[in-house]
């Protein structure tokens, strides 16, 4: 076991981890931040996406020890200071961008990473960016709409509707 320290959602945290402890397990089991989900555990689905030093990563495919000293943001860090839903979260609710909600934390974190780089993405850019985020419920159209809305853009009818 060795000690790891990082900032999670702006708060300094530390804990004892094994070499093999995944970042997602540290967040969920040690920190109690169960908003980050494990969908596949094989690096495919994106349910576990968090930001490490501003970059979207799959928390199931990174060791906790590798986040030493890093600034980590999870879905729990996406709400406004008063606890109300953040812009992207609210857009997912308004546009029915979720059904069971299992993929949603990863979708929101990927969307946030996209909008940071590209504040006004096209529908095509959104779909391309979400290549590594799987949703088994919605069929994606409402997720794309929600992200377009969160970026303050008009929402033309999305393709294939």
């Amino acid at each position: 076991m060795s000690k790891v320290s990082m900032r999670v959602n702006g708060r300094a945290v530390s804990g004892e981890v094994e070499g093999r402890t995944l970042l997602v397990d540290f967040l969920r089991n040690d920190q109690g931040l169960t908003g980050t989900h494990v969908g596949c555990d094989t690096s495919q689905c994106g349910a576990c996406v968090v930001h490490v030093d501003g970059a979207a990563v799959k928390a199931c495919t990174m060791f906790a020890a590798e986040a030493e000293g890093a600034e980590v943001t999870t879905i729990e860090g996406m709400a406004n200071a008063d606890g109300s839903l953040g812009t992207i979260q609210q857009a997912f609710q308004d546009h029915h961008g979720l059904q069971c909600g299992f993929c949603t934390p990863g979708m929101v974190m990927s969307a946030a990473a996209l909008l940071k780089d590209n504040p006004k993405p096209s529908e095509h850019e959104i779909r391309k960016y979400l290549e590594g985020n799987f949703c088994r419920c919605t069929g994606y159209h409402n997720i794309v709409k929600a992200i377009l809305a969160a970026s303050g853009q008009e929402m033309p009818a999305v393709a294939a509707e």
Partner: peptide, 9 residues
């Protein structure tokens, strides 16, 4: 290659 999260690591 892969997707944005894979490309970040």
């Amino acid at each position: 290659i892969g997707d944005p999260a894979v490309r970040n690591r």
